[in-house]
Simulated assay, not measured.
Amino acid sequence: MGQSSTNASQATVEATVIDSELLDESLLRRLLVRAGRSLASPALEALELLLDPGTPSPVRLTMLAGLSYLLMPADLIPDILPVAGFSDDLVALTAVIGVWRNHLTPTIQARAQRRLDQWFPLTR
C-alpha cells in the first residue's frame, strides 16, 4: 500500500447532512396531504429530527440512509422473493425506528405537531 492509500484511510470527511433551505416543503406537503394526518405525523417527526441542530450527524446519516433505502425502487434482495425479499427492508426500518425512538425529544415532537396542525388543520 502506498502513501496515498494511507492518507485516504486517515482522511476526515465533514458533510452537512440536510439543510432546511434545500428542503422542498411544497413537494413534501403535497405527498403528505395524500397520505393524511396519520401518516404525516411520524413523517413530520422524522423531518424535525433531521432538521434539529441538536441531532448528532451519525443519527442524521442513519435516518437518511434508512429512509432512502426504504424509498428506493431497487433492493439488495428483490421484494418478489417470499419472506427474504422484505428482510433487507426490515433491517432498514429497524435502524430508522431505533434511532428515531432514542433521539426524539418532546421539543421535536411539539414542533412536528405544530407543523402537522398547520398543514392539516382539524375541522369540526
Score class of each variant (00 low, 15 high):
residue 15 A to D: 05
residue 1 M to C: 12
residue 35 A to Q: 15
residue 58 P to V: 08
residue 21 E to I: 11
residue 120 F to G: 03
residue 53 P to T: 07
residue 31 L to V: 04
residue 87 S to M: 14
residue 86 F to V: 13
residue 19 D to C: 10
residue 92 A to V: 02
residue 80 I to G: 02
residue 46 A to E: 10
residue 112 A to Y: 04
residue 17 V to F: 09
residue 69 Y to R: 05
residue 123 T to Q: 15
residue 96 V to P: 01
residue 99 V to P: 02
residue 26 S to P: 00
residue 109 Q to W: 01
residue 109 Q to D: 07
residue 57 S to H: 13
residue 9 S to P: 06
residue 9 S to E: 13
residue 58 P to S: 10
residue 82 P to W: 08
residue 65 A to V: 07
residue 49 L to E: 08
residue 111 R to D: 07
residue 11 A to L: 13
residue 105 T to R: 06
residue 50 L to M: 08
residue 31 L to N: 12
residue 67 L to R: 08
residue 71 L to G: 14
residue 52 D to T: 09
residue 75 D to V: 01
residue 76 L to P: 00
residue 37 R to G: 07
residue 123 T to C: 08
residue 113 Q to S: 03
residue 38 S to E: 15
residue 93 L to F: 13
residue 26 S to F: 04
residue 38 S to I: 09
residue 35 A to C: 02
residue 12 T to R: 11
residue 120 F to K: 02
residue 66 G to I: 04
residue 41 S to K: 15
residue 103 H to Y: 09
residue 68 S to V: 12
residue 122 L to A: 14
residue 68 S to M: 11
residue 79 D to N: 11
residue 13 V to G: 05
residue 56 P to Q: 08
residue 81 L to G: 05
residue 6 T to V: 15
residue 55 T to K: 02
residue 59 V to K: 04
residue 8 A to K: 13
residue 51 L to H: 04
residue 9 S to H: 12
residue 92 A to E: 05
residue 85 G to L: 08
residue 45 E to S: 11
residue 85 G to I: 06
residue 58 P to F: 03
residue 114 R to I: 03
residue 36 G to A: 01
residue 10 Q to D: 08
residue 34 R to S: 13
residue 6 T to P: 00
residue 88 D to N: 12
residue 67 L to K: 00
residue 32 L to M: 03
residue 75 D to I: 00
residue 36 G to H: 04
residue 116 L to M: 01
residue 67 L to Q: 11
residue 57 S to T: 15
residue 121 P to K: 12
residue 82 P to H: 08
residue 37 R to V: 06
residue 42 P to V: 06
residue 63 M to E: 12
residue 57 S to V: 15
residue 63 M to C: 06
residue 78 P to W: 01
residue 10 Q to A: 14
residue 79 D to G: 11
residue 9 S to W: 13
residue 44 L to I: 04
residue 53 P to M: 06
residue 5 S to H: 14
residue 102 N to P: 00
residue 8 A to H: 11
